[in-house]
Design a protein around this nucleic acid. Structure first.
Lengths: 77, 77
DNA sequence: CGAATGGTTATCTTATATGATAACAATTTT
DNA sequence: AAAATTGTTATCATATAAGATAACCATTCG
């Protein structure tokens, strides 16, 4: 998706959450396990995956490392 | 750059700041002008460009829209 | 020269991401 | 069936991103 057309901030947060959930499921690990690997609270990861919070770059960076993917993969629109 | 090798969080924040600054300069606009277009404080944008803060996705999303680039361009390592 | 412009840094306030914990429902497992 | 697992949501505390403002320093421009 190209920047600026239909995507708004709220939808983008939802998209990022879905990206994380898909990548996590493709690796076959639970939220609790991923949260542990990232040093994040499992409640926090649940909030992120449901798009109900506005994550910082550091948080996404940690998740990308734990999933062994490029951070870009979390941010695709 | 591939995830997980040499890049740490602090260096990544610096890199993002440099990316923003380069893109902004390539468009020939000042920090004050970009901050205005993003509805950000110019002091905040200065902090971001110097890598001294940990931006949220919403903030980067606003900047990418104002610069008319893909958010991925701000996040390249 | 003084006045504007561009960027940085400091301080304080406000909003909110995250930590920490708990309770809950729905599955899955034994 | 009971117990464990998985994910969600709620609450409260804490840390910090961002707002708001101001004071700087350099540089540019009149």
């Amino acid at each position: 998706m190209y920047p600026g057309l239909t995507m708004n901030e709220a939808n983008y947060l939802k998209r990022i959450g879905k990206n994380i959930k898909e990548l996590r499921n493709s690796k076959g690990i639970s939220q609790a396990e991923l949260a542990y690997r990232c040093n994040l609270e499992k409640a926090n990861l649940s909030r992120l995956e449901s798009g109900n919070t506005n994550p910082t770059i550091k948080t996404l960076f940690k998740i990308s490392k734990a999933l062994k993917v490029n951070i870009i993969d979390l941010l695709k629109m």
